[in-house]
Amino acid sequence: MSAGTQQSASPLDYAIDQQSRVTLPTVRLAVERGNGVLAFQPVVQSGRTERPAFYEGLIRIIDESGRIVPLRDFMPVAETTELGRRIDCLSLALGLQSLREDPSLRLSINMSARSIGYPDWITTLRDGLIAEPQVAERLILEITESSAMEMPDVVHQFMREVQGYGVSLALDDFGAGYTSFRYLRDFCFDMIKIDGQFIRNIANHPDNQVLTRALQSIAHHFDMFTVAESVETADEAAFLIDMGIDCMQGYYFGAPTIAPPWKSPPTMVQR
């Protein structure tokens, strides 16, 4: 950062830039070595909250000292670069590995639409599904709304391919950014995950209630399941159940963990 840029940037922007300069090489090296694990968070059906319908596998990068690197320290910068694509590759490889190891597991894995055109990512997906076709029906790919709307034609073509394998697709962070409802109609996602900003304190927040009901109505109109993200209290859960949300996810039902009950101590994908 030049002196002029440093002077014009806010102290927070400068701190984030400095943190990225320190962290990104560490993350890059860890990803190259396959030093990552998934943290599993349950997603429950509203009518059967005692048992997860599936889990979301959230990537955790581990540095040379064995420390988990906080996502906030690198993901905002990495997600639009090749490092973001490499992280998506590692996350997908770990997810496919988990599905192979446990035939009872259903798992969602995050991805950016930018990874669709990344050769290593699409090869990892195709090779994994060809080698183990039975995992396809237990795999859910979560595509962020912001990235999907940037390249709708690419996403639409991709959806046709992976749904042919039996893979389900979810639109993540629904409502967080600009949504083209024309593209939403054409996409035919299996599942919509309503962004947590609309869910937090929903039991006491009339605006969030109206917005969540609107997003739920849109999803159900297109025959898509709804998942409410960031459910953190009993009041929020009770309100969402009453309004007819299909599934819920959040700390109220379980925090992400790298040591879920069914799993032995985590192993890393070796590269």
Rank of each mutant, 00 (worst) to 15 (best):
S2K: 05
S2M: 01
Q6R: 15
Q7C: 02
L12M: 07
Y14M: 13
Q19W: 00
Q19K: 15
P25T: 10
T26N: 09
R28P: 00
V31E: 09
G36S: 05
V37Y: 02
L38A: 11
A39P: 07
P42W: 07
V43E: 07
Q45R: 15
S46E: 02
A53P: 00
I59Y: 00
R60W: 02
I62G: 06
R67C: 05
L71I: 13
F74D: 09
V77D: 14
V77C: 06
E79A: 04
E79P: 03
T81I: 02
T81L: 03
G84Y: 01
C89F: 00
C89S: 12
L90A: 06
A93S: 14
L94P: 09
L94R: 05
L94I: 08
L96I: 15
Q97G: 08
L99Q: 09
R100V: 08
E101L: 11
P103D: 14
P103I: 02
R106I: 10
R114D: 09
I116E: 12
Y118M: 05
P119E: 07
P119W: 01
T124V: 08
P133L: 00
V135C: 03
A136D: 05
E142C: 07
I143M: 07
I143Y: 04
T144H: 02
E145F: 05
E145P: 05
E145K: 06
E145G: 07
S147E: 01
A148D: 06
E150H: 10
V154M: 11
H156M: 13
Q163E: 11
G166F: 04
S168W: 00
L169Q: 06
L171V: 09
D172S: 09
D173R: 01
A176G: 15
G177P: 08
S180V: 04
R182P: 00
Y183D: 14
L184F: 09
F187P: 12
C188E: 13
M191V: 14
K193Q: 09
K193M: 04
I194Q: 09
G196C: 03
G196T: 11
D207R: 14
N208D: 15
L211S: 11
T212G: 05
I218K: 01
A219P: 08
H220Q: 13
H221Q: 13
D223T: 10
F225T: 14
F225R: 15
V227R: 01
A228F: 01
A228C: 03
E229Y: 03
S230A: 14
V231C: 07
A234N: 10
A234G: 06
D235P: 01
A237G: 11
A238N: 13
F239W: 15
M243P: 02
I245W: 02
I245E: 03
C247T: 08
I258N: 10
P260M: 03
W262E: 11
